[in-house]
Amino acid sequence: MATSPDMLAEIAGETGSLAGKAGVLPRQDIRILVKRGMVRSISGEFAESQYQPASLDLRLGHKAYRVRASFLPGPQKSVAQVLGELTQDEMSLENSAILEKNCVYVVELMESLEDLPATISAFANPKSSTGRLDVFTRLIADRSEVFDTIPGGYSGKLYAEISPSSFSIRVRKGSRLNQLRFRRRGSMQEEATGFRLSDKELQKVHDETPLVDGPATIRNGLVFSIHLAGAHAGDTIGYQAQRYTDVIDVDRVGAYAIDDFWTPITAKANKRLILDPHQFYILASKEKLHIPSGYAAEMAPIDPTMGEFRVHYAGFFDPGFGVGAGGMPGSRGVLEVRSHEVPFVLEDGQVVGRLAFERMAAEPDALYGAIGTSNYQGQALKLSKHFKS
């Protein structure tokens, strides 16, 4: 179902104001940005399913450009200008096209921004399903010097850089690989600071509404560890991506057999896993998580002194994620893991990352788990939505 800006006004139930508290904008405020034409679509319409509790799904446009290398345009150039210098091939996405693994593509998105308020900046991240397919994607804006970040006051087009790593993927116009969040800052806040909760504030939140199913380890954010111990010997505790597989269509849900793409990893008596260099794994956190309705969370980059591996590619958690029976934490964090240059040993319960929490500017009018696109509520170890249960 598609909704026009006029219809969105009725959904919002008011003319809408962008004034309010500092923090991550909830979906009802994103609707106001759309209604006012600050977020636009090439088609002039937005699908209701694009609106997540604290973000807006972005859609691929009609053409993909294969480029020689990843790039940032810098303060003097548009993305289109750089594409003119680096493009190796063009392909239409009107029907569909295959993006080959280990290649880099740039696609203009259907959404753009027009006179974004100076007090509202935007930040992008891959969707959960994108990260679980090991598809590396980042947002690029005209005259930008950093990925995934749009300053307040921006007007212009938006592009997705896409680089599949483990599997070649089939995409088309309208496919959704990343999402955009908006932050409103107060008059005394810098553009990108002052949003994250301090450890003291985070401990208070946990005391009032448990963030994990047990004692919380809070150290520059909520610390989480890896789950490598099954209830019984031989239980599946993870998956390793196979190297030579068929193409995955990102718009097909529940269509693929797990064994055709993944090798199960079973629990061992020593509760240990050795990561092979440059291989991709899906694992799970030991802790069950819950993100309260007034907050959002993001997996923060791991301290490199903890090991040469990465545990997240799409690490944003919406308000309401993980709520279980009685409001207690009920969902594990699924981790996209890749070792770098050397083999690395992980032990059950080893700390592998942390969650940084931010305040919402207001509670969303619908939480994760209460909308039709909440594919990972109540998850344990879970591959992307494309695979059969």
Rank of each mutant, 00 (worst) to 15 (best):
A2H: 08
P5H: 11
P5V: 02
D6N: 13
D6L: 06
M7C: 06
M7I: 06
A9R: 13
G13E: 11
T15S: 13
L18M: 14
A19R: 14
G23T: 05
V24W: 13
P26N: 11
R27K: 12
Q28T: 12
D29I: 08
I30W: 08
R31S: 06
K35G: 06
I42G: 03
I42T: 14
E45T: 12
A47K: 11
A47N: 09
A47W: 05
E48I: 13
Q52A: 07
S55W: 15
G61S: 07
G61A: 09
R66G: 06
V67H: 07
P75M: 05
V79A: 06
A80H: 04
L83T: 05
G84M: 11
Q88C: 11
Q88I: 13
D89S: 14
M91W: 01
A97I: 10
I98Q: 09
C103L: 14
V106K: 08
V106D: 08
E108C: 10
E111Y: 08
E114Q: 12
L116W: 02
A118I: 02
I120R: 07
A122P: 04
P126N: 10
G131R: 08
L133D: 00
V135T: 07
F136T: 02
F136C: 06
A141Q: 09
D148A: 01
P151H: 01
G152Q: 02
Y154V: 01
G156C: 06
Y159M: 05
S165G: 01
S166G: 02
R170P: 00
K173F: 02
K173C: 12
N178W: 06
L180M: 09
F182V: 00
G194T: 05
L197P: 00
L202V: 03
Q203C: 12
D207M: 14
T217N: 14
I218A: 11
R219E: 14
R219N: 15
H232K: 15
H232I: 12
A233L: 14
G234W: 12
G234R: 10
G234H: 11
D235Q: 12
T236V: 15
T236A: 09
R243E: 12
D246G: 13
D249I: 02
V253D: 13
D260M: 00
F261T: 01
W262C: 01
P264Q: 07
I265P: 03
K268S: 15
A269P: 07
N270D: 15
N270W: 05
L273G: 06
D276M: 11
D276A: 15
P277W: 10
H278R: 13
F280D: 04
I282Y: 04
A284S: 15
K288S: 14
A296Q: 10
A300C: 01
P301Y: 02
I302S: 15
D303E: 10
E308T: 13
H312T: 12
A314N: 05
A314E: 04
F317T: 00
D318G: 01
D318E: 15
G322Y: 10
M328F: 09
V334P: 05
H340Q: 12
V345N: 04
G349P: 02
Q350T: 04
Q350C: 04
V351M: 11
V351Y: 02
G353T: 07
G353N: 10
L355N: 01
F357M: 03
R359D: 00
A361N: 07
A361E: 04
E363W: 01
P364T: 14
P364N: 13
L367Q: 06
N375Y: 15
G378R: 11
G378A: 10
A380I: 05
L383E: 05
S384R: 03
S384F: 09
H386L: 00
K388F: 00
K388G: 00
K388I: 10
